[in-house]
Every structure is written in C-alpha cells, then in structure tokens.
Computed example of a mutant assay.
Amino acid sequence: MTGSPGSASADPAAAAPAVLMVGVNWIGDAVMSMPAVQAWRALNPAARLTMLVKPPLAPLWRMHAAPDDVAAIEPGSLGAVRTGLALRARHFDRAYILPHSFRAAWIAAWSGAPERIGLPGLARGLLGVRVVQSRSGPDRAHQQFEYLDLLLGPGAAAAPEPPRLRIPPEAAASAARWLAGLPAGPRVAMMSGAARGPAKRWPVERFAEAARRLAADHGCAVIALGSPAEAADAAAIAAAAGGRGLSLAGRTDISQWAAVLAGCALAVSNDSGGMHLAAAAGTPVVAVFGRTDPGRTGPLGPLCDVVQAPGARSRDIGREDEDAVRRLAAVTVDEVMDRCVRRLARGGATGGGRSCVP
C-alpha cells in the first residue's frame, strides 16, 4: 500500500503516511473519540488511515468519514498476534493507541509501525510506545480531550466538532420500513438498557410511564430500542404507549440502530452507548444520569439535556453502586417529561459542540 521510494514522486498517494489507530472497545467511548479523529483527519487529509477495532465496533466506524479502511481484531491472544502480523504487511508509518490496555499496545507493536504513540497504560515503555499525558482543566474535563491530546498534542487548542455519522442507505431503508407503520406524530426513541448494569439504569417502570404520557398527552410514537437481552423491558415500554409503540430491541444491527435514531425527534436514554449513538446520529437526547459525571462522559453535541439528582459525581462506579442506584431512583418521571417536552418544542435548535450538562 505504501509503494516504493522510487515511485513516491510520480504517485503523490505513495508519499502519504500510512497511519493505524487502535480504537477503543465500547460504543460510547468510540463515539467520544470521534471528535478527535475528525480533528486529526482535518489536519491530515492526505494520510491513509486504518481504524482497528473489535468486530462489533467495525460497522460503527464504517459509518464515519475519517477512516479509509476499518479492520477487525481477531479474538484471543493468538488472534491478536495474527492481527498484528497481517497489519505489518501494510507498512504503517505510525500507530496511535487509544485504549489504555496492554493488548492494544501489543497489537500496535506487532504491526511494525516504527512510531507508536498512546495514552498511559501497562508496559508502554517495554512496547516502545511514546506516552502522551492529557492536560486537564476547567474546560477540558471531558473524556474527548484525552483523545484530542493524543492525536493533536497535549493541550490542543482545537474546539472539537461533535461526532458525526453517515447513515448507510440500506440501513436508512430498513428504518423507514419499520417506522412507516407508526401513527403520525413526533417519534421518540427510548433506550432503557446500559452495559454497566443497575448503577446506570433508570427504573424501566419509569421509562414505561414516560412512554405512556408522551403517547397519550403529546401524540408521540415511541420506539423502544436495545439488545436482545433488553427485549422484555423494551416490549413493556412499547406496550405502555398503546397503539403508538413499537419495540425493535434485538432486531437491529448497529447501523440500523443509528438509522432509527436519526429518524426520531428525540431519544430518551440512560448513560449508555445508545445515548452516545443518538447524539452522533444528530438526534436530540434527554439522558438520565445516576452518579457518573456528565461533564466527563456526557453526550457530545448541542441537542441534549441531562437529568440527574444532586450529589457527588464519579467517573468510575461499580455495577451495583448503591448511591448510583439511589440517585437514579430519585429522578422522577415529571422531571424527565419536562425535559422531553421542552426539547421537543425546541426541535432542531443548534449550538456549539460541547458536552451536555444538567
């Protein structure tokens, strides 16, 4: 892919640097890294960028404009070695390592990229990784700035643009077919799941009550989304909306999920990957937070609101964190409905690409 030295002057593409980015492992983290990748791409338009991620995240990055190619990491230790050796044939000039994990840096080392740059993590020096320390500050608390500092340099002054996804036509067509059967009215997506368990899940009964009110009092159509494991909760939410509800939990792939969100006037969600996906799809968001800090990991973009009970905030909490569960239970349906109604009334208002705050 890089061409021979003798052909560089005749072929400008041959002189373009080949760059590998080892991406993060969760939907939410991936979306939070997108503003930095976008900013890097704007400064390096000629570079040939390969994004390397776990297989479930490959379709997400294929919806993004920055990578020229998206590659998947094979599972297991031997798979990591095979992945690295396959990448070596591409002759990368540089590798950026976005995760803090040893495995991500190990694969980058196997790729043979002579310059390897990453955030702090285990055995970085041993693996030949130059570590970049992110610079914090009052206006740089959000996780997106860690990735911005990695890709653009510590303290990068760039004002990051919100994450942007391109919905594939086939996914948009699938979403249109599903949504066509709903009654007229604003479409509201509801996502009651969260990978971190009860510490990030507003009670499903409250999602259902909000769905009932949105349908009965405001003429909304409610679409419940989630994984196959969340199908029962999604069915209960859709049922609460009566004939104005639809459950698609477990029926969409990630591109179809994004397409459905893009077709909605609003998304109501826990602090989850679905929340970040909705923001990246350009859909207004009302997010319910427990104890996690929206200033550090909140959805990115101007069209979102966060509802959170008062109290101390933390970036890292356990799945069963009692204070987080209590704080979620303290958020009322009335509070969430107030934000939903106000956001629906504002429609497509736009603003700067900052993280949402309560």
Rank of each mutant, 00 (worst) to 15 (best):
G3V: 03
D11H: 03
P12D: 01
M21V: 15
V24T: 13
V24M: 07
V37S: 02
V37K: 02
V37I: 11
L49Q: 06
T50L: 01
V53L: 11
K54P: 02
I73L: 15
E74I: 00
P75T: 10
A86T: 09
R88L: 04
P99E: 13
L119P: 06
L119Y: 06
V129N: 03
Q133H: 15
G137K: 12
Q144D: 06
P160D: 10
P163V: 13
A172W: 11
A175C: 00
P183E: 01
G193D: 10
G197N: 15
K200S: 09
E205K: 12
F207T: 07
A208P: 03
R212G: 02
R212L: 08
I237A: 12
I237V: 15
A238I: 00
A238S: 05
S247Y: 02
V260D: 05
D271C: 09
A278K: 04
A278I: 04
T283F: 12
F289I: 07
D293Q: 01
P299V: 13
P299M: 09
G301L: 02
L303F: 08
V306K: 07
R313S: 05
R315I: 01
D321L: 10
D321G: 05
R326S: 05
R327V: 08
D334F: 09
V336H: 11
R342I: 08
T350L: 13
